[in-house]
Design a protein around this nucleic acid. Structure first.
Length: 421
RNA sequence: GGAGAGGUGGCCGAGUGGCCGAAGGCAGCUGCCUGCUAAGCAGUUAACGGGGAAACUCGUUCCAGGGUUCGAAUCCCUGCCUCUCCGCCA
């Protein structure tokens, strides 16, 4: 959420930002409500002051045993008037709040303007593997090696679900442990959050109200299945005032993620590339405002470390404004190369949200004693998404014999084995 | 699911209709004092919103939302959460 004062003072900036994010925005309606709100406050507070003064007077007279009937009668009318005006003000405020929740964050100046064709490759790492044969896609490798069962996933849950079996299931477990251990070594605290969260929590990080169609909502309760660990982990500190010396907070969590992927039909649907449920190791940072952009670089590097350790070539892309998510001001995508599907796959999005989420969650800190409270800045990034990491691992590390080579650094997590065959 | 207790400022904790934004204590901050691993004394310390260049000023806030009243932390209703006991349960 943006500060209403900021919007009031920079309407064109906000308008341009929304347009560049391809977001419809009724900015004029919002500003009108803001104006109306302040006018109403001015009016009703005048009356409240009158009422308060009179009430004190009534109390004094009653104590002195004097008659206060006239004043009470007069105040009854004022009180009623205030009641009506307060009701009106509440309506305005909730309408304003509703609109504010739909205003996207402003892209940082360093972000290229345009759609996804304007995304910029910042750097690349590793060499695409060379093969003396045509590399197979993961769905063939996985099925042949008894690691992946797509047919049964579809049977029990429908399209967009898969089953990992045997060494496939074990490999994923190994990867989760591997990732978490590495991040913990970098100073992240491991978190196991709930996977079902409230509407308020979903609103805190910005998934609601805008992305409601992309999420699974429970029928009986007012709860949602998390689309990413970002939601419960960032919201850990919703409504809190943090100590400055506690910052930055760095968390790593493993969670399943649930996505309806509404409107994504027909795109990357083969195998495990785009599914309704997948596992993810997520990094979250809560930091002081001055350091958030530097922390973004560090966070991205921490995610990259996983790909490097797994010997998977990738590129880092800075997203253009049109590709940037609703809440982000700047975002790097990590795209791993995968030989079988002959494509880059997004395995991580590392984003800085500035105080956009903090404002929604109401998470603040006091920079120093006596100083005013400020909103923290929040960041997150995958470290990494499991299915696509597994895809790249299977496809890039496949051998002519049809086996999969386990990268050296992962072997301790896979019983010391160096190959799946 | 059943029974009970409770939710007050950074923390503890008083407060059952009228200068209560809220006693007292702790913690913090500012002085003074003392020269010693600390104590004493005095003062001070909430958030949010409106107006104002500012000084400042006004309003709101005692879990949340309604209600009663001229006036509610205090009374009534609903909800949420926490704790204890019982039941159920991986």
């Amino acid at each position: 959420m943006l500060d209403i004062k900021f919007i009031r003072e920079n309407p064109e900036l906000v308008r341009t930002a929304a347009a560049r994010k391809n977001t419809d925005l009724d900015l004029d309606g919002l500003l009108r409500l803001d104006k109306e709100r302040r006018e109403n406050i001015l009016e009703v507070e005048k009356l409240k002051q009158q009422l308060n003064t009179a009430s004190a007077e009534i109390a004094k007279r009653k104590k002195a045993g004097e008659n206060a009937a006239a004043a009470i009668a007069a105040m009854k009318a004022v009180s009623e008037q205030i009641g009506g005006m307060d009701a009106r003000l509440r309506e305005i405020e909730s309408a304003l709040q509703a609109k504010l929740l739909w205003v996207p964050n402003v892209p940082d100046e360093s972000v290229p303007v345009g759609d996804e064709s304007n995304n910029v490759t910042i750097r690349t790492w590793g060499e695409k593997p060379a093969f003396s044969f045509t590399p197979a896609p993961h769905w063939e490798l996985g099925e042949k090696l008894g690691m992946l069962d797509l047919a049964r996933g579809a049977k029990i849950s429908g399209s967009g679900y898969f089953v990992l079996t045997g060494r496939g299931a074990r490999l994923q477990r190994a990867l989760i442990n591997f990732m978490i251990d590495r991040h913990v070594r970098e100073g992240y605290t491991e978190i196991r959050p709930p996977y079902l969260v409230t509407t308020q929590t979903m609103t805190g990080t910005g998934q609601l109200p805008k992305l409601a169609d992309d999420m699974y909502k429970l029928g009986e309760e007012d709860m949602y299945l998390i689309p990413t660990g970002e939601v419960p982990v960032t919201n850990l500190h919703a409504g809190e005032t943090l100590k400055a010396e506690a910052l930055p907070l760095k968390y790593v969590s493993y969670t399943p993620c649930f996505r309806r992927e509404a409107g994504a039909h027909g795109k990357d649907t083969r195998g495990m590339m785009r599914v309704h449920q997948f596992d993810k190791v997520e990094l979250v940072k809560i930091v002081q405002p001055e350091s958030s952009f530097a922390e973004l670089e560090l966070l991205t590097a921490d995610a990259e470390d996983i790909l490097q350790a797994l010997e998977l070539p990738y590129r880092v892309r800075m997203l253009a404004t049109g590709d940037l998510s609703f809440a982000a001001t700047k975002c790097y995508d990590l795209e791993v190369w995968s030989a079988g599907v002959d494509n880059h796959l997004e395995v991580s999005s590392c984003s800085n949200f500035l105080d956009f989420q903090a404002r929604r969650m109401n998470t603040r800190y006091r920079p120093a004693p006596k100083e005013k409270l400020r909103f923290v800045h929040t960041l997150n990034g995958s470290g990494l998404a499991l299915p696509r990491t597994m895809i790249a691992l299977l496809e890039n590390h496949q051998t002519a014999r049809g086996t999969i080579r386990i990268p050296e650094k992962l072997r301790p997590y896979f019983g010391g084995e160096d190959e799946i065959g």
